[in-house]
């Protein structure tokens, strides 16, 4: 029973209900999250992925269907949704635009303080979170607005991590970062799962972001879940994915081309490392 951390049960949600612009953002969406897994949530712009993750922390209420966190219905009247948001942390898209405090330390302590920790506890949690995202000690007393874009984003992620969530949801965390910043951030997220056992949901429109780290990939299109499977199985549907405007990781394409050119490679390798080994094996 306890294996399922979170269950989404037939969620339906419509934007601008009852007007001419009504649009179904979630259309009968069901899935489960297990403790300690890394899930990639993939979809094109407007596929409903951001709407979905806002439901997971009870920021939006579904028109029908519900969500269970550790067996409790989070839309029940007396459910403590504030406490839920501590346990299921959501990092919004471009989270650096929500910074407001005078120093990085007080910025990151905002969340833990809201969760009811006293000043000392909150600052300790903040300290650990800032270290966790790889920021230097000098940053602590700096204004978050003086930091670089990439550092700001780390501060924002730390501000959610400081609440010590059991599930961490990141909505397009790599948007607008340079390639090096992107790799660093993705490595850090993977570490959070491996070292601290935090369940991760990584929302993205890029297969390359999730191909390597995810244990499972959920593909959304037009408010529906199309695939919910392990990466390799999802990438076999390459044509369908392309029709949705998504495509497969870069490596898949390289291998497919090589195969078409007559090199006997297995096209199921998805990461750079696997592809390298596969090509070397085929050449040998």
């Amino acid at each position: 029973m306890n294996e399922y951390k979170l269950i989404a049960d037939h969620l339906i949600y419509e934007y601008n209900k009852g007007t001419a612009q009504a649009r179904k953002a979630l259309d009968d969406v069901s899935f489960v999250l297990r403790s300690g897994e890394f899930v990639g949530l993939i979809g094109h712009t407007g596929s409903g992925k951001s709407t979905l993750v806002q439901h997971l922390v009870a920021l939006l209420k579904p028109d029908s269907g519900t969500i269970y966190y550790e067996g409790a219905d989070i839309f029940e009247k007396d459910y403590n949704r504030k406490a839920l948001r501590g346990k299921v942390g959501l990092v919004f898209q471009y989270p650096e635009y929500q910074l407001f405090e005078e120093t990085v330390l007080s910025e990151v302590s905002y969340g833990p303080k809201n969760m009811g920790m006293d000043k000392k506890e909150a600052e300790l949690a903040a300290y650990a979170a800032i270290k966790r995202v790889g920021l230097e000690d000098e940053c602590f007393d700096q204004s978050p607005f003086d930091l670089s874009g990439g550092q700001k984003r780390r501060v924002a992620i730390a501000s959610v991590l400081a609440m010590k969530p059991e599930i961490l949801i990141l909505d397009e965390p790599t948007a607008g970062l340079d390639p090096a910043g992107r790799t660093e951030l993705l490595d850090m997220i993977k570490e959070l799962k491996d070292k601290e056992g935090i369940t991760i949901v990584l929302v993205s429109h890029s297969m390359d972001d999730v191909a390597e780290a995810a244990d499972r990939i959920i593909v959304m299109d037009k408010g529906k879940i199309i695939y919910d499977d392990e990466p390799r199985a999802v990438f076999t549907h390459i044509e369908e994915l392309e029709a949705m405007g998504l495509g497969a990781p870069e490596m898949s394409y390289v291998l497919h081309e090589l195969k078409a050119a007559g090199l006997p490679v297995d096209v199921n390798a998805i990461t750079l490392k696997e592809a390298k080994e596969e090509i070397l094996r085929a050449l040998a």
């Binding site: 922390v57 504030k82 942390g89 929500q98 407001f100 905002y110 959610v160």
Partner: peptide, 27 residues
């Protein structure tokens, strides 16, 4: 969007007296 983001960080815009409420809007 910002209200939702701060709610996700445990903000509370509803409870407390008027001064507390006003303060909660700083973020």
């Amino acid at each position: 969007r910002i209200m939702k983001a701060q709610l996700a960080r445990g903000a509370d815009f509803e409870s407390g007296n008027i001064i507390k409420k006003a303060k909660s809007f700083i973020p």
